[in-house]
Design a protein around this nucleic acid. Structure first.
Length: 342
DNA sequence: AAGGTAGTCAACCGCCTCAGC
DNA sequence: TGCTGAGGCGGTTGACTACCT
């Protein structure tokens, strides 16, 4: 015994809405509102139609024709049509970069809570966002990476996230896997060498590049070495053709080509063509970013808010009720802080 | 030109939550 | 406290279109 249907399915029309039906529903709701009862709405529209007929015998034929036939639609269908299509101030298509970022960020944070995500995007419906994600945004973000790592990613994700239990992994929903993949990509972008020990995810390097990455990892483990380095003239640091530091300290600038966020050391732009020809061009981080060039497509300015993107939340805490009354993005930030500090 | 395939999106389905009784 | 029904939600479907072979 299942639940009784909300309406008599044999006597309701299904499928695409006609412009007449749209007009009936829109006219009624704009005049009387929903009355707090969607299920009864089609009947109410029928009554309204009868009244309209008697009152408007001498009124325009079009209006009479539109109103006198009632609305043979399920209440749920009316609700959906109003919310997703007829409601004023709705936007259709043409998602902006900012909206893309918000959707991606929230999807990574809270998963497929489309109504919550839609609440952060005025004029957008959950259905619209869901369709946009499933048909475009997901492919934009995951498609290229899936192609390039189709064989090894699932294992890599498992290992990198400490998910060793096969059964548990298989039980992960597809959305959870997608979020894991996105999170992995973001981790890589924040620290390009974080996946170095994972051969399936890290690009193949030549011996020189291998050496440089190892140097970089050495610095990660021994930041005190880097602190001493701050008193050196960074522009004089160089590695030899095998990637060894000439003056005994690995050349961070040569490896990363970027400002080091811990020390504030700025990269030197004094590389010669010969140096670049030796092996590391473009820089490692650049290589990784280029591999995920979907991000370039997304924001044009590349990685401008990756930190904001990578909020990782406890999904269970994101019940629809708790998210409704607060600014979700702000909450994401707070929870990310908690997450970071353990 | 015709058939096949992929992409898009409106609409439906079924489950869950919650308020009212 | 349990039942009922409406609202709400996410997943899925199917019609339509565009593109490819």
């Amino acid at each position: 015994m299942g639940r009784a249907p909300c309406c008599d399915k044999d006597n309701v029309k299904r499928g695409p809405w006609s412009s007449e039906e749209d007009a009936k529903l829109k006219t009624y709701i704009e005049k009387y509102g929903t009355g707090g009862n969607w299920i009864a709405l089609p009947q109410k529209i029928g009554i309204y139609a009868s009244l309209s007929l008697s009152l408007s015998l001498c009124v325009c034929v079009y209006i009479t024709r539109v109103k006198c036939t009632g609305l043979k639609r399920c209440g749920k269908s009316c609700r959906l049509r109003w919310l997703n299509y007829l409601r004023p101030n709705l936007k259709h298509g043409g998602f902006t970069e900012e909206e893309d970022n918000i959707i991606c960020s929230l999807y990574i944070s809270i998963g497929s809570r489309w109504s919550i995500i839609a609440a952060q995007l005025p004029g957008r419906t959950d259905n619209d966002i869901k369709n946009y994600w499933n048909t475009r945004l997901k492919k934009k973000l995951l498609g290229r990476h899936r192609q390039s790592h189709r064989s090894g990613l699932s294992i890599s994700v498992r290992e990198s996230n400490g998910i060793h239990d096969t059964q548990n992994f298989q039980n992960l929903s597809s959305t959870a896997l997608e979020r894991l993949q996105l999170h992995m990509q973001l981790k890589t972008l924040e620290n390009p060498f974080s996946l170095y020990n994972n051969p399936a995810l890290f690009p193949k390097l030549n011996p020189l590049q291998e050496k440089m990455v190892q140097n970089f990892q050495y610095l990660e483990v021994n930041p005190d070495v880097l602190m001493q380095q701050e008193y050196c003239n960074i522009s004089e640091l160089r590695v030899d053709e095998l990637g060894n530091s000439i003056n005994g300290i690995p050349s961070i600038e040569y490896i990363s080509g970027q400002s080091n966020t811990k020390t504030g050391i700025q990269p030197s732009s004094a590389f010669t063509q010969a140096e670049l020809d030796v092996g590391l061009m473009p820089t490692q981080s650049q290589m990784v970013v280029d591999e995920f060039d979907c991000f370039k497509e997304m924001d044009g300015s590349r990685l401008y808010n990756i930190g904001w993107w990578s909020n990782e939340l406890d999904v269970n805490s994101a019940s629809s009720k708790s998210w409704d009354s607060v600014n979700v993005l702000q909450k994401s930030e707070e929870m990310y802080q908690n997450y970071s500090t353990g």
